[in-house]
Design a protein around this nucleic acid. Structure first.
Lengths: 204, 204
DNA sequence: CCTCGCAAATGGACGCCGATCAGTTCCGCC
DNA sequence: GGCGGAACTGATCGGCGTCCATTTGCGAGG
């Protein structure tokens, strides 16, 4: 075949990303090959390289979608809550739930290192930074007396801790440190460590 | 060539593991291939499959060594310290230092998921559990009034948090949440969150 | 000292992968 | 109606993990 013009470049890109995400979710990272993606969208492998620089470029596009999905999920969760403390809890639980509910997408985002020569692709990084900033903003409402530097340090450390719970949960290593696999438990413990016991006074 | 008997099976295994670790450290996970390992030890690829079931079996052997190295490193660090609080700090810093100092070994251990059909290989898991138990034991000395369940939960959560710092540090994503890349800062903040400010009274 | 069984090790084959590019096809403009 | 060039193909390359028929040579038995 030659020129078909069935879809625009942009459409083909979207199709490829969607197909790749489906393969990623259903079959895992190792099964996600350019050949499978090409076959899934009805084009040849060579054509994929007119849409993406290489495989890592496609994976980076996937990661952008994942980062967006996490951010929007957390955003939706907290906008119905008023108490900053509850917001942080909801974000933490939402983060862990996304990790355990979408392990392959989560792993690709955080554990698949892209080669450094494609570092000038700040889009994905910016979307993660947005996530950290969401935490920071929420934390600012909870601890208004903290200075900017201390606030940032605290938010980053807290979210790094939550991230660690997610990381261990996804790789199935949380049970190594204890019997339970109920990640919410670890979540609550982390929040308590950072922000004190839940609801210190109720109906008092 | 045929029978050489230059090295025993055990020796060949050790040579292969050592060679693989060198390649892992120097060139990264993606460059660690069975062919390179075979060439490095002066044998053919086919012979490697008389020593290991498959590549993941070799990687699992590498991970055992890494887990041992981390455990022994932390053990050495704390045995010269008496104060439990200082011990936990030393362990946390040591963990992060190992992660940032040996990123490829650390990534292979925690971020490379082995296929589930080789799950009946409890050796590597046991070595990680040992690490968690070391934390738990040290924490027990700091908070003697905690019950076993609460202790385990607290230790696991704390160590999961430290692990998260390491995970983000290794993947270079810690700067996303703040300017500094001085991981010790995050370490101290995490310890403070869990165990209160450092040295609450000095020379008082 | 010879020889021969069998363990030890080889090396090539298979099917997959990411990546490249000369060549083919056919759309749309003149 | 025809043609230039964009769109797309598919063959090709080197490398990968894995397997196994074949070859080699050590060492026990004569």
């Amino acid at each position: 075949m030659g020129r078909r013009n069935l879809h625009t470049r942009e459409q083909q890109r979207d199709m490829a990303i969607a197909a790749a995400e489906l393969i990623l979710v259903r079959e895992g990272i190792d099964e996600l090959s350019m050949r499978k993606v090409a076959q899934a969208i009805g084009y040849t492998v060579g054509n994929l390289y007119l849409l993406f620089q290489n495989q890592d470029d496609l994976l980076a596009a996937l990661n952008e979608r994942t980062a967006d999905a996490i951010y929007l999920s957390l955003r939706d969760r907290i906008e119905v809550l008023d108490d900053p403390r509850e917001r942080l809890g909801a974000m933490a639980r939402g983060y862990i739930e996304f990790a355990t509910g979408n392990p392959n997408r989560w792993r690709l985002l955080f554990e698949h290192q892209l080669p450094e020569e494609m570092k000038p692709r700040p889009t994905a990084d910016a979307r993660i930074r947005r996530l950290f900033e969401l935490v920071e903003t929420t934390l600012a409402a909870l601890e208004p007396k903290l200075k900017a530097d201390a606030l940032r340090l605290r938010a980053t450390t807290f979210w790094g801790g939550i991230h660690g719970i997610g990381s261990l949960a996804v790789s199935g290593k949380l049970s190594w440190g204890g019997r339970s696999s109920d990640y919410t438990l670890y979540c609550e413990e982390m929040i308590t460590a950072f922000f004190g016991p839940l609801k210190p006074r109720r109906r008092s």
